[in-house]
Nucleic acid binder design. Structure first.
Lengths: 204, 204
DNA sequence: AAAATTATTAAACATTTGTTTAGTTTTAAA
DNA sequence: TTTAAAACTAAACAAATGTTTAATAATTTT
């Protein structure tokens, strides 16, 4: 890893856990084991570093569902299952970055950054929207509120993983329970969400 | 309103929209039109002010569902309807404060504050949990995953209202659309969530 | 090998930060 | 009306902030 990449990784880690304003460039420099001035040398400013961080990681999140939409061998509900599994997988493996995105989204500052982030998140929601719409058109899905149904899917997954503390309290677990490392929770969340969607989308 | 209350109101407003670290005590003093030193005079420190803010508003959020649980005249699903309506009502009328709570929850800093916040949020979730559990015991609800079902309810509502920008994008609305002022959206969200819960909870 | 470009650094910069001090004004009690 | 407490203030404090400078080291190009 180059020093530039070290800075980006440390920035994700710290912005994710302490927030943008809660993280100083010196914190990042210390974590990445580089000189403070190097951050401005490579990224111009703290704010531009943040944008670079989002861009850097956003490419990984890019279009994992777009190919799914064109797949003709899977039924609509099977596609939903895959979407749910992948969404959960992504949240569990990259929780810090998702916290960062949603926290920034809920802030009134840096509007152009909010715009960029919501675009990134929407890239994954648009194919889901299309899949539900297609399911309805084909007659296999009920005529649900499409936009709010996808909100339910991603909202359920997101809310449970807002924080370790909250997750533990919701589930009634002890201090030692670590949601993000817990495979059983991942499966439980998947089962719930899939069952919920089958019950709501599929005609009886 | 006393100056002390002015400070609290300005603090909620600014902490809510710009975050804890993103708001300076001078910002708050300016907004409340008081001298900066008065904040430390009344609240000792910025951090204690934050705790006071949470405490101050938390009392309003207190136990609106606890009496509902003991109500014998309503069916389980009617109780769910009320919970959904009240949850939506609360989020719409006090979005800023909810942003503040959830943002702080997703941060790694101030663990004792996270603990307090998750306790506040749980106060409203525990009766919901009990209501679902009772519905199952009575045989009118399916044997669902109780904890994750309540996560779905609150997660759906919460996710849609993460930010104006994101909400507009999800719903495919134009720039002028203001989610938090929109009565129609409130009703639409209520209808969706209630239908979803009926479909998932009630036996066919 | 010399020159030129890129990477890296320590130190200093001006602001902004939360907080304190020491004093003044206002209010309430005696 | 004097006294004591509470409310309020301007100014100063040290520490931390993001950023720049000016110099040096390393690498690449010629």
């Amino acid at each position: 890893m180059t020093k530039k990449e070290n800075i980006l990784e440390s920035a994700i880690k710290l912005f994710g856990s302490k927030g943008f304003e809660g993280t100083s460039v010196r914190d990042i420099a210390a974590d990445a084991v580089v000189n403070v001035a190097l951050i401005n040398y490579y990224f111009v400013s703290k704010e531009k570093l943040f944008e670079s961080v989002v861009e850097y990681r956003a490419s990984v999140l890019k279009g994992i569902f777009s190919e799914l939409f064109n797949n003709k061998e899977l039924t609509a509900i099977e596609k939903m299952d895959i979407i749910i599994d992948k969404t959960i997988e992504r949240k569990f493996s990259d929780a810090n970055f998702h916290h960062l995105l949603h926290r920034e989204l809920s802030l009134g500052s840096r509007p152009q950054c909010r715009e960029a982030i919501s675009d990134i998140l929407m890239r994954n929601l648009i194919p889901v929207k299309k899949i539900i719409k297609e399911g309805i058109k084909e007659g296999v899905f009920n005529k649900v509120d499409i936009e709010l149904t996808l909100t339910t899917v991603v909202g359920t997954i997101h809310y449970l993983l807002t924080s370790d503390t909250m997750c533990r309290k919701i589930l009634g677990k002890k201090e030692g329970f670590s949601p993000f490392q817990n495979k059983h929770l991942k499966q439980r969340l998947g089962e719930h969400t899939k069952k919920l969607m089958r019950s709501y989308l599929l005609k009886k």
